[in-house]
């Protein structure tokens, strides 16, 4: 095995293990934060501060009976849980989660694949995530599941447009489609003190992208595909045991991926002026940049959770009109202004 392949495999394993093991603790954090916001304490019985609660939850899902309901479309029903995992894990391939580490004379970049068309890759894979949800809804042969699946499709399609327009703004600014170069473009400082993160250059774009990220992940206030009061559980109503667990896992994993992408595009990726600009030796520099990246992702994730426990759910017609009548024009104006400024400043 050549060292390149070994390095690639190592990175892939590290990313998959990292994301998948972060998910249970994200669920745990969600439960804790939700409890604290509601003046409760949250899970605290399993292990110290309830830290083993995610293990217990996982074991519960593993030992639950798997039910294949009557009248399902077996192929679609069984395929859907596998499909939903593609989007969160594949998108992570283009995210630079640290600078680089030098080990045994080899410089390892902390990114699985530095595609020159990283953003396009993301958009393509993000569209795939519709299939899992739609097939899950279709294959279950249940009216509520179908409604949930259809809603997920409509929502993803509507919000992806505004998201794409925000991305164009970023591409115009940094003049590249590669995520690592977008991060590199945010390395300097503005006016001497402000880090040159895109969030300061594109505040409106950041806000729109954030809203679209909520919608893409079916998070409250946009969780209509699984609105409990109307649709039981939406597209995963008929799923049990580990198959349900996969949907659950994918939802939280895509939250992590989306936050990581947000950090990469708008919050300077793994850069932090004053910390990652210094040299801490061949290994530590990379690790510290990864830690900076992780801290930023955690902050964005906290915002996700905070929003969920603050805002109520949209009505369906408001969801659609918000996307088409507010977000899309706003994203267009943002793009137009960005383009004008760039043209004028040469």
């Amino acid at each position: 095995m050549t060292p390149e392949i070994a390095i690639s495999l190592g990175r892939i394993l590290a990313v998959i293990a990292g994301v998948l093991s972060a998910v249970p603790y994200l669920v745990f954090a969600e439960r804790k934060i939700c409890a604290y916001i509601q003046d409760r304490i949250g899970p605290n019985r399993v292990g110290p501060w309830g830290l083993f609660q995610p293990l217990a939850d996982g074991l519960k899902l593993l030992t639950k009976e798997e039910i294949l309901p009557n009248g399902i479309d077996r192929f679609a029903y069984l395929l859907a849980p596998a499909l939903v995992m593609i989007h969160p894990l594949a998108t992570f391939a283009i995210i630079p989660f640290g600078s680089s580490i030098t080990l045994f004379g080899q410089t390892i970049r902390l990114q699985i694949a530095d595609l020159p068309i990283g953003i396009l890759f993301f958009l393509g894979v993000a569209s795939l995530s519709v299939y899992g949800l739609a097939l899950g809804g279709w294959g279950s042969n249940n009216k509520y599941s179908l409604m949930g699946g259809l809603r997920a499709c409509a929502q993803l399609v509507s919000y992806e447009l505004s998201m794409g327009l925000c991305l164009v703004g970023i591409i115009l600014l940094s003049g590249t489609l590669s995520t690592s170069q977008i991060v590199a473009a945010q390395e300097e400082t503005l006016l001497g003190f402000l880090p040159a993160w895109n969030v300061f250059l594109q505040p409106a774009g950041f806000a729109i992208f954030l809203i679209c990220a909520f919608a893409e992940n079916n998070r409250l206030p946009f969780d209509l595909p699984e609105a409990e009061p109307e649709l039981v559980g939406g597209y995963h109503t008929e799923y049990t045991g580990l198959r349900f667990g996969t949907f659950f896992l994918a939802e939280y994993a895509s939250m992590i991926t989306m936050s990581a992408l947000l950090v990469t595009l708008y919050l300077g990726g793994h850069h932090l002026p004053g910390v990652t600009t210094r040299d801490f030796g061949p290994v530590m520099t990379g690790l510290i940049s990864t830690a900076v990246f992780g801290a930023k992702v955690a902050t964005v994730l906290f915002t996700f959770i905070w929003t969920r426990w603050t805002l109520p759910r949209f009505k369906y017609q408001n969801l659609m009109s918000f996307s088409w009548k507010c977000l899309l024009p706003a994203a267009l104006v943002n793009l137009l202004m960005t383009a004008t400024v760039i043209t004028l400043s040469g």
Partner: peptide, 20 residues
């Protein structure tokens, strides 16, 4: 929105009512 987020943030740090 700001007001709403402020309220939840305040409750994040306020006294908890759960009795063990």
């Amino acid at each position: 929105l700001v007001k709403g987020f402020g309220i939840t943030l305040k409750h994040l740090f306020s006294r908890k009512f759960t009795s063990q």
